[in-house]
Amino acid sequence: MWTWFHKLSSPKWFYQISGRWLPWIACAAVLFLTAGLIMALAYAPADYQQGNSFRIMYIHVPSAILAQSCYMMMAVAGGIVLIWRIKLAEMALKCIAPFGASITFLALVTGGIWGYPTWGTWWVWDARGTSMLILLFLYFGVIALQSAISTASGAARAGSLLALVGLVNIPIIKYSVEWWNTLHQPATFKLTEKPSMPVEMWSPLLVMVIAFYLVFGVVLILRLRNEILEREHKTNWVRKLIETPIESSTTSVEKTSATKRGA
């Protein structure tokens, strides 16, 4: 188990295996995204009150979910960095942050676009929107701190600690924002809560959530592979990979590095 863990966390192994996985994950992402978009835009029924603006939910909700779980994953990577000092986790931390920030931004903006036709305002300081905005600030903090530190592992360790401190604070922030919101309740905008969404309404949502996670997987792998090439440029296998035409098959990399080590 332990050796497996270490093997999994070796950049070289990850580079090779992710190269094999990437096409499949990318295909699945395109498939789910296409299916989700068609279901969400053409097949889902319009809401009886909100009309077709309700369809924005299929972008807004998946991005909001992903925004939060991205932060969670970033903090988990941070914990791994601080406890086990695993290089791959350092890279993951750096790669997740920009995606998380952009998806949080998407959730905020689509929330506004959905809010205007539905409630007549682009932005209300409600609990959910406000905590989303603070989440965006937390992402900015992690990104800014990482980019200010010159050494890669130092940046990762500082970013890890900050991500973890942020994670501890998120429930407190959430609670405080909810408290604050109930005190300053603006004119009540409430999502028309229906006891049960019909299956035609929630199934596109499910497909879209899966599609968003798959896209996240693709982006993470792409970014990680770049990061590995950059940070491991002194190792033999990366040198070999760079020397041969870029998209060489992974097996030749294995062979060349094996012969190198043998020699």
Binding site: I59, L106, V109, T110, I113, W114
Partner: peptide, 18 residues
């Protein structure tokens, strides 16, 4: 999209763009 073309399409467009 009913009367909401601008909202729906801009949200989806931005989503796909990002």
């Amino acid at each position: 999209m009913g009367k909401h073309a601008a909202y729906v399409w801009s949200a989806y467009g931005l989503g796909l763009l990002i």
